[in-house]
Amino acid sequence: MRDKELYKALVEKDSAYEGVFFVGVKSTGIFCRPTCPARKPKYENCEFFTSAKEALLASFRPCKRCRPLSHPNQVSEVVQKLVEAVEENPEKRWCDADFRALSVDASTARRQFKKRFGMTFVEYARARRMGLAMKEIRSGGAVLDAQLAAGYESGSGFRDAFSRIMGAAPSRADKRVVWKASWIDTELGPMVAISDEEALYLLEFVDRRGLEREVERLRMKNKAAIVPGETGPIDSIRRELQLYFKGELSAFETPVKMIGTDFQKSVWCELMKIPAGTTVSYADLAAVLGRPSAYRAVARANGTNQLAIVIPCHRVINSNGELCGYAGGLARKEWLINHEKKMPKKSLLQKA
């Protein structure tokens, strides 16, 4: 559903949308249910989510008025108590003694959270911590600072936790498709890679806003569980990225899987033909595709690219020569363009 439709439902407090979406308010940092009685935010301050978990991972905290983590007609005192305790100290890592201090049975907490929200209390607390960590990274903070703020003393523990939020655990995967996710450090900041044993599905900077929702859409669309791990394609792209950032690679050979419409795929394929160190405009791409008036559609397709650097959407600029939007940030876009100007002008063609 489009954001404007959801915003209309929010303004009208339409109860038919209860459980369908949650709204994060950027100006306050809270997220609410559609029927929240609070004053409605401006449209530009809204971010919409299909689950409470998505909102938590995007660093929003639950509203105290509409209590989005409680069933609208049945509020659990145990759930209320635990949510309030988490908000008092969101960086806290919970243990059995903490439950006893609140006179709460850990198994009861696990069962009630699982029934209400599809995740255990420990998963909720972890998601809240990781949301804060993602906010720290997005605001320009060091990954190490975000890691420590989230309560992880080791980098590997932080990365594993980041991966675990992306999908079901292996024991719950049953017969579903299982993809692997891994963290890749680069000169421009950490990236996350997702693949199966055959091809790479996603490669994106960790601090890209909306990454969590993008991963969730990818997971749901393909009915895949995403778990921590390594695969041949992930090992391959990690090695190739190291060479790329050293200026020693101008052609990625890691196999990829493009997931999109035929038009989007046609745009992405043209992007991969742009020689390193050169740039084109959206109008140029539209003309090459034989649809010169479709430059806005080309721009949208460019923005939905899920394979950063490999599909070089950073090589597209405005017709006037100015840099334009890039999900990884304009500073990264400028760096990548300048970096590639030092490379031999070869096409970054991708093996399908």
Rank of each mutant, 00 (worst) to 15 (best):
residue 235 D to Y: 12
residue 235 D to K: 15
residue 235 D to M: 12
residue 237 I to M: 04
residue 237 I to C: 08
residue 237 I to L: 09
residue 237 I to N: 06
residue 238 R to K: 15
residue 239 R to T: 12
residue 239 R to W: 03
residue 239 R to S: 12
residue 239 R to L: 10
residue 239 R to N: 13
residue 239 R to F: 06
residue 239 R to K: 14
residue 240 E to P: 00
residue 240 E to Y: 01
residue 240 E to S: 10
residue 241 L to K: 08
residue 241 L to T: 07
residue 242 Q to V: 11
residue 242 Q to H: 10
residue 243 L to K: 15
residue 244 Y to K: 10
residue 244 Y to W: 09
residue 245 F to P: 02
residue 246 K to T: 07
residue 246 K to F: 01
residue 246 K to A: 15
residue 247 G to M: 04
residue 247 G to Y: 01
residue 247 G to A: 06
residue 248 E to C: 08
residue 248 E to G: 11
residue 248 E to L: 14
residue 250 S to D: 14
residue 251 A to M: 09
residue 251 A to I: 08
residue 252 F to Q: 09
residue 252 F to M: 13
residue 253 E to G: 15
residue 253 E to F: 06
residue 253 E to S: 15
residue 254 T to L: 13
residue 254 T to K: 05
residue 254 T to G: 10
residue 255 P to H: 09
residue 255 P to L: 08
residue 256 V to H: 03
residue 256 V to Q: 03
residue 256 V to G: 04
residue 256 V to K: 05
residue 256 V to P: 02
residue 257 K to Y: 03
residue 257 K to C: 11
residue 257 K to R: 14
residue 258 M to D: 02
residue 258 M to W: 03
residue 260 G to S: 13
residue 260 G to N: 10
residue 260 G to R: 05
residue 260 G to Q: 11
residue 261 T to A: 14
residue 261 T to Q: 11
residue 261 T to G: 14
residue 263 F to N: 06
residue 263 F to I: 08
residue 263 F to A: 11
residue 263 F to S: 10
residue 264 Q to A: 13
residue 264 Q to R: 12
residue 265 K to M: 08
residue 265 K to V: 13
residue 265 K to G: 09
residue 266 S to D: 05
residue 266 S to V: 01
residue 267 V to R: 04
residue 268 W to Y: 01
residue 268 W to I: 02
residue 269 C to G: 12
residue 269 C to S: 14
residue 269 C to Q: 12
residue 269 C to A: 14
residue 270 E to K: 15
residue 270 E to T: 10
residue 271 L to V: 04
residue 271 L to W: 00
residue 271 L to N: 01
residue 271 L to P: 00
residue 271 L to A: 04
residue 271 L to I: 03
residue 272 M to Y: 00
residue 272 M to A: 15
residue 272 M to V: 11
residue 273 K to E: 06
residue 273 K to S: 13
residue 273 K to L: 12
residue 274 I to Q: 04
residue 274 I to A: 13
residue 274 I to M: 08
residue 274 I to G: 07
residue 275 P to L: 11
residue 275 P to S: 15
residue 275 P to C: 11
residue 276 A to F: 01
residue 276 A to L: 12
residue 276 A to R: 10
residue 277 G to T: 05
residue 277 G to R: 03
residue 277 G to A: 10
residue 278 T to C: 04
residue 278 T to V: 03
residue 278 T to Q: 12
residue 278 T to N: 06
residue 281 S to C: 06
residue 281 S to P: 00
residue 281 S to T: 08
residue 282 Y to K: 07
residue 282 Y to T: 07
residue 282 Y to F: 12
residue 282 Y to P: 00
residue 282 Y to M: 08
residue 282 Y to D: 07
residue 283 A to G: 10
residue 283 A to L: 13
residue 283 A to H: 09
residue 284 D to W: 01
residue 284 D to P: 01
residue 284 D to K: 00
residue 284 D to R: 05
residue 284 D to A: 08
residue 284 D to G: 03
residue 285 L to T: 04
residue 285 L to V: 05
residue 285 L to R: 02
residue 285 L to W: 00
residue 286 A to D: 02
residue 287 A to C: 09
residue 287 A to T: 14
residue 287 A to S: 14
residue 287 A to D: 13
residue 288 V to Q: 11
residue 288 V to K: 11
residue 288 V to F: 01
residue 289 L to F: 01
residue 289 L to N: 04
residue 289 L to G: 04
residue 290 G to Y: 02
residue 290 G to V: 09
residue 290 G to I: 02
residue 290 G to F: 02
residue 291 R to P: 00
residue 291 R to V: 07
residue 291 R to Q: 14
residue 291 R to M: 06
residue 291 R to C: 11
residue 291 R to K: 13
residue 291 R to F: 02
residue 292 P to D: 08
residue 292 P to E: 09
